[in-house]
Amino acid sequence: MPVRRSLAVESRPCAFEAWWEEVLSALEAQGFSQDDIFAVHLALEEAFQNAVKHGNRMNPAKKVMIDYTVDPEKVEVRMTDEGAGFDPGRVPDPRVGENLYRPAGRGLLLIRSYMHTVEYNERGNSLRMVRHKSRPVPKS
């Protein structure tokens, strides 16, 4: 049975843990591997911190809306903040030149690396991410 939930989470960096435990339980119940869980954990952590710090700017009056579905094949998460949004295409590539030594852009790079689908809405304040369950490697 797919698990579907919608939450409104307060804009505090440490609020991640409370709702992550729910997603983790759903992933384990659907048989996702530890590698999948590591990937989803990292992507959601980075997305949530971006929403809280850059989107809502730690404003306690603002929430991060999270909608997630976990089914036997995939996990899909939409995360929406109440900020002005941003253009993900203008975030510098943190792997290039002097950017290696700057703090910006690594979270977004990790989200794109660990999730199979990453899409922003036009305003840039809502992110949809999907990761498909890894197939077990067949024994030779």
Binding site: F38, L42, E45, E46, Q49, Y101, P103, R106, G107, L110
Partner: peptide, 16 residues
């Protein structure tokens, strides 16, 4: 076993 990109920034700062 797990760290975020904020820690990577910290390591760069320490390295410098």
């Amino acid at each position: 076993k797990f760290l975020s990109s904020a820690v990577l920034g910290l390591l760069i700062r320490i390295s410098k």
